[in-house]
């Protein structure tokens, strides 16, 4: 992988999972991590929206429901950039396999649905290295909705897309919002060469498939602990 900005060779590999809430992507990336770690590979895992420094602001902002599409996007970009420069990029340069639960495509999908301009969004993340593999967990909208909604959870304001005034009912709003986010993901499959995983398959089958793809695209022997 090359960092195209300065032509520098990057030893590490970057794998991201993307998909709707309820698509099972977090489960799968967790299992992949366990497998790589357990087999003695240098691997690092990181989640969207988890930088310590920015977390406080993000939490406060969401609670106060004062975010606009623009500030929603920027506050997540700030959080991501902190993590990217502090963890993801150094890990990649140090030759780790970095696993990301959601990457910039989450912002592209959600923020575009909220009305942000696609070119403006792509500019923000222009400095970012694209993953070697993006697993996209694809499944019918109804299935992912029922996985989330069947338990009648308390939906958070922004998670349900309530800021978009799609419906006064959080559950209906969530359905409509997720439907639009899914459309955006589907549009990106080709543009960013997503590897599509059928998320209706058994968990075990999905995991086998992912391992196969990882093995075919990455020479894992280079990433054994102790190998420089």
């Amino acid at each position: 992988m090359k960092n195209e900005k300065n032509g520098e060779e990057i030893k590490g590999k970057l794998i991201a999972v993307e998909g709707l809430d309820g698509s099972g992507k977090s489960t799968q990336i967790h299992l992949l991590y366990k497998w790589l770690f357990g087999n003695g590979y240098k691997v690092f895992f990181t989640e969207w929206n988890s930088s310590d420094l920015v977390k406080e602001s993000t939490k406060k902002a969401k609670k106060r429901q004062l975010l606009t599409p623009t500030t929603f996007s920027l506050i997540h970009a700030t959080d991501f950039t902190d993590r990217y420069e502090r963890q993801i990029l150094p890990m990649l340069k140090a030759g780790y396999i970095v696993l990301c639960d959601r990457y910039i495509f989450t912002s592209y999908a959600r923020d575009q649905v909220r009305g942000c301009d696609p070119d403006w969004l792509r500019n923000i993340y222009q400095y970012v290295i694209l993953p070697d593999i993006v697993f996209y967990f694809q499944l019918p909208l109804e299935v992912s909705l029922s996985r989330i909604l069947d338990g009648r959870p308390a939906l958070k304001y922004f998670e349900a897309g309530m800021d978009m005034n799609l419906s006064p009912d959080p559950y209906m709003s969530f359905r409509l919002f997720q439907g639009r986010v899914k459309e955006q993901y589907e549009l990106m499959v080709e543009e960013f060469h997503f590897t599509v995983i059928q998320a209706e398959l058994l968990i075990l089958q999905q995991q086998e498939k992912m391992k196969e793809i990882v093995k075919s695209k990455i020479n894992l022997s280079l990433y054994k602990k102790g190998v420089m």
Partner: peptide, 27 residues
């Protein structure tokens, strides 16, 4: 109201990268 407090704290610690500070200010 959104980020001024966190931004102030972050600047005190001098721990954010320039690009993170850029985006924080943009927010």
């Amino acid at each position: 109201e959104l980020v001024s407090e966190s931004l102030e704290q972050a600047k005190k610690g001098n721990v954010l990268s320039p690009r993170t500070i850029s985006l924080f200010y943009a927010t």
